[in-house]
């Protein structure tokens, strides 16, 4: 995209773009789409901004006290101008609204990016993130290893306060909340280490709550999983209970295995009813037509 090219060029010229975590340097289709949407909206907005920056100096010069402009103290309305100043914003809002609608629906974070995504369960904890790999049977703290070019589905919940999870170079934010499960789908098309972090203030260790997202080639990822499996450490309920107390983890921790269904148990600590017996309840007002149709079995396991 030429627009991206221009912004990229601009970005390269300004100090700071070497930063490890910005959607200005997307490393996957989601962040890339968000970046180009940013560009499209900015460009469209120039339609109302440029005229102001051009016209205001002219008007100020011409109609300054002692300027050449004719003094017409009672002039207060003109239908033609009125149509223009209402019409252009309305048309612009229509265009922007359409772009927004299309982009929002297309890039719903819950929409899977392909068949057989790699599922990673994310538990936000005080000042660290726990990643569970049900497929591989391994778990990590503050290290999210991902294979290149394979769709990833992150399922997020929180073992503590609300947090906001982001890997800027791959995808935008989503909140992680206790007793609830949110989803974030992404895909990495470049290998490398990308920073991810929590952006929602959650206490003393907030500033340091970041993690490394390590994108590897599929083979390297498989090798990583095998090597991690060989780790002696295992994460069980007691180990998880220890993680619940607030702490800052400076080096990633790897677990060779974890208690299956741990994610569901974390959810169930806060929402037993949601896991066991939801569905009987109906919204009191107004009547809810879809109630009970959306079981999410893994939450109950």
């Amino acid at each position: 995209m030429t627009l991206r090219g221009i912004v990229g060029l601009l970005a390269a010229a300004v100090p700071g773009t070497a930063s490890a975590g910005s959607f200005l340097e997307p490393a996957g289709p989601i962040a890339s789409a968000q970046f180009s949407h940013f560009g499209v909206i900015s460009a469209l907005m120039l339609i109302v901004i440029v005229p102001m920056f051009v016209a205001l100096p002219i008007v100020l010069y011409r109609y300054r006290r002692g300027g050449k402009g004719t003094y017409r103290p009672d002039w207060e309305f003109n239908w033609g101008l009125e149509v223009v100043i209402w019409g252009i914003p309305v048309a612009l809002a229509l265009a922007l609204g359409m772009a927004l609608w299309k982009h929002t629906l297309e890039y719903d974070p819950y929409r899977a990016l392909g068949p057989e995504p790699l599922v990673v369960e994310v538990v936000a904890l005080d000042w660290k993130f726990l990643f569970l790999y049900p497929e591989q049977g391994v778990a990590t703290i503050n290290l999210l290893a991902l294979p290149e070019d394979r769709p990833v589905t992150l399922r997020l919940t929180s073992g503590t306060v609300m947090q906001s999870f982001i890997i800027p170079r791959l995808a935008g934010q989503i909140y992680a909340m206790a007793g609830m499960q949110t989803q974030l789908n992404l895909l990495a098309s470049e290998t490398g280490d990308f920073i991810g972090r929590n952006t929602q203030y959650n206490g003393l260790g907030f500033a340091t709550q970041s993690f490394t997202t390590r994108v590897m080639s599929p083979d390297a990822f498989a090798g990583w999983a095998e090597a991690t499996k060989a780790q002696p450490a295992a994460l069980d309920a007691a180990g998880f209970a220890k993680l619940l107390s607030p702490s800052v983890v400076s080096e990633p921790v790897l677990y060779g295995r974890f208690t299956p269904g741990l994610f569901g148990q974390v959810m169930a600590r806060f929402a037993p009813a949601m896991v066991q017996g939801h569905g009987q309840a109906g919204m009191a007002a107004p009547p809810a037509p879809h109630q009970g149709h959306h079981h999410m079995p893994e939450a109950g396991r």
Partner: peptide, 9 residues
């Protein structure tokens, strides 16, 4: 309600 469907059900 939307939240209920997407995050709690």
């Amino acid at each position: 309600y939307d939240q209920h469907i997407r995050m709690m059900a």
